[in-house]
Nucleic acid binder design. Sequence first.
DNA 1: GGTAGACCTGGACGC
DNA 2: GCGTCCAGGTCTACC
Length: 326
Amino acid sequence: MPGFSLTPPADYLLPRDYCSYGYFLLFPNHWSVREQALTRPLRLSGGVVGIRVTQPRRAGAPLKIETSRTLARDEREEARTQITRMLRLDEDDRSIAEFHRLDGRWKKTGRGRVSRSPTLFEDVVKTVTSCNVTWPGTVQMNRRLCEVLGAPVPDKPDAARTFPDAARLARTRPQTLRARCRVGYRDQRLVELARLFRTPASRGGLNVARLEDPATPDDEVHEMLIDLPGVGPYAAANIMQLLGRYARLPLDTESVRHGRSLLGYKGSSAQVMKKVHSHYAPFGPHAFRSYWLEMWEFYESKHGPAWTWERDSTGKMFTAAQLKKA
DNA sequence: GGTAGACCTGGACGC
DNA sequence: GCGTCCAGGTCTACC
């Protein structure tokens, strides 16, 4: 199998750092528990390619990237960029060290990276499909978006199809999204979202470069995100953490549950949310990482390490009823 | 600025 | 197996 290798940061451990956020369980991602390998298709300028990522069980060991076809040099660079984004290999070591200084609980395990998607568009759509729906619904929507609108990996009919890009989603009829992808009332919003990604900023579209520029102030990024269809305060804060901006907390009903059961807060949902917010405020620019890793540790205490979770049977672990029981 | 109610789907539960 | 209830964040209308 053709491929290439990628040198990660010295502390990088694929199972721990990739299986660190729920999106690792969403199509078209697939984590093989048995092989401890990530597979998924990527969309490159020369067409779709299937990738398989593995790492010897040693922090910092080179990542082995196997590809379903031989890539030209520029395509390999594209794949490298997307994989780097997805695995957060570009997360500044100093940022992780600073986080560990602020919240010493994670230094020993080395946790700090939270995985994401190869593109911002996929992250935004995944966030919108996680709003106002239980986790199995999110799993279903993402699976169907790929099955209905994704492109196949050439010569690999059994492989997952790509996540639809903005161009594909922008020309899909809302009725198709609703009927075949089961996205419900999100149909029109998703199409509008895709159109905003497709339209140049000079013609009223989304300024993606400005959003992804680390020099853009948090407040400006938040303002741009909150204007997007389907994006409210929770989704905006979540997209911000996916952009590497960890100061804001995407608080939802799960946060309230966490605040009550683990942090011992009492009162109305709004009061508990306020208290949860204050609880993580001392972690400043790394608040989200403290919050999220605490939540993740709780899930793992109930279900074992995330790298042992099977994608196709995990949905039911995170229904509201199961979490209440936990 | 704050809030009530609609939006849509799938899981849970009772029969 | 069927019907009903409920969970979930965003958006709009209204005060």
